[in-house]
Design a protein around this nucleic acid. Structure first.
Lengths: 252, 252
DNA sequence: GTAAACCCTCACGCAACGTGAGGGTCAAGA
DNA sequence: TCTTGACCCTCACGTTGCGTGAGGGTTTAC
């Protein structure tokens, strides 16, 4: 059982003593003991906790989110974090693509990085998927959404094409299952449900299973969703909705 | 010549009025005029400037950096920004891969998630940032880690493989040019020089043309570099070195 | 025995705005 | 004309995650 001073731990972790003080003050990581003269003393458990904290921080969680995550299921946290990281990657890739074209284009006018598509994108002039806008709207009030509410990235035409085809693919495969008579709770369908959730998480917003469940309900209760989805295959909306509901039952 | 109020511009750009006020106060974007009653009025030039500002912000520049960038060479700014974005993508991709691995592993075994190894694995032994590599090192020496220290599998083997193949590819193509008799200053060679620089920027550190030039000199003056590069093709180190030097002459 | 190297607790500063408070301004409708 | 609601204005304090001293004890090494 070894113990460390603030300085020890700070240099080990590559952070400053001030950061340790800060984590102590906000109650995120308090030393397990103090010396008679008031020096902070951390033990191995504290080290472990700090490691976890720093991991979450690296993943982009705020300190309050980290505090919550420490009391929750690590797997859930990691899943959420990964979805977030993936969306971040998509966003950066989009930016990088535009930067590259801007750089290789001869047009070095006064306004940099601004292809006409960019200008539209920045000002959100193109019309994004109506349904997602609706969804985002509805969920904008929930805490779950607020937490990870980053601006929705602006996708290019080719991005949208890609997203569309990915989406169509999921619908198509799901329709095949449905027509083959597989129950909505079957493992095959459940895999597609998870893929569907990840699809939304990756391209739109952080779709937790709970939010996904809310979406699923709307697929049957909101006719705009229903008709949109049933355009691929009649009855698919209901099937998907049922499958999503089943996935939740499965978890609990 | 149209003019807009703060609210107009804010809603157009998808930002808040407060943000506009802020940009005004810090002198980043002040309205070109005011009404008699003090309302801010922005003209088309202001709109253009705001667009550029938001683009830079999107690229991750701070507002002070943005202010500087507005007065500088757009191309240089974009190049630096892109390198930064690319490195960021690499970092996130690495994290995402490891998160996926952690998730599927724990999911299958049912083992408690987020062991010490997991946490190290998320960032692992590949980290473009030298500093954090040292930090990881120091972590590994704590008692807490030693206790539970089983060897962490090298998740980054595939990363390195990828980097190696990318590097080899550049060398190979450059060697072809050399053997075909193309001068080091030829456009084809220069394209590869740029690709080489970007390769380094993407995987290792921010390699400015100046740093690149320094590297190029070492390729001939430091035998360790020379022999390593000449392993692909004898004389390649000198050729690459010359090509890099030529790229600098070209710029000035 | 003293100097260097730690540690402590305030407490203000920074970025980039969010969020009211308290109060004018402007076009539209009763 | 008068009021209502949707704008606009200027303070000015709150937030996050610390940085950076200020002023002052404590420990350790020579």
């Amino acid at each position: 059982m070894s113990s460390y001073t603030v300085g020890d731990l700070a240099s080990m972790a590559g952070i400053t003593v001030r950061t340790m003080h800060h984590y102590d003050k906000i109650g995120l990581l308090s030393p397990s003991s103090r010396t008679s003269s008031g020096y902070r003393l951390y033990d191995d458990d504290d080290v472990e906790r700090l490691r976890t904290i720093l991991t979450y921080r690296e993943l982009g969680l705020s300190l309050s989110e980290t505090a919550r995550a420490l009391d929750e299921d690590p797997e859930e946290t990691l899943r959420t974090a990964r979805d977030r990281v993936l969306r971040q990657i998509v966003r950066l890739e989009h930016i990088a693509r535009n930067l590259t074209t801007s750089l290789t284009d001869t047009g070095m006018t006064g306004a940099p990085a601004m292809t006409s598509e960019d200008k539209l994108a920045v000002f959100g002039d193109f019309d994004p998927d109506e349904h997602t806008a609706e969804v985002t709207q509805r969920w904008a009030e929930t805490d779950a959404y607020k937490e990870s509410a980053r601006r929705t990235p602006t996708y290019s035409a080719s991005d949208w094409e890609h997203i569309r085809s990915e989406n169509d693919d999921i619908y198509r495969r799901l329709a095949e299952l449905k027509d083959a008579g597989a129950p909505a709770s079957s493992p095959e369908a459940q895999l597609l449900v998870e893929e569907h959730r990840r699809h939304i998480s990756r391209w739109y917003y952080d779709c937790t299973p709970e939010i996904h469940a809310g979406l699923g309900q709307m697929y049957t209760s909101d006719s705009r969703f229903t008709s949109s989805i049933d355009a691929t295959n009649v009855g698919l909306a209901a099937y998907l909705s049922e499958a999503i509901a089943a996935s939740l039952d499965d978890r609990s």
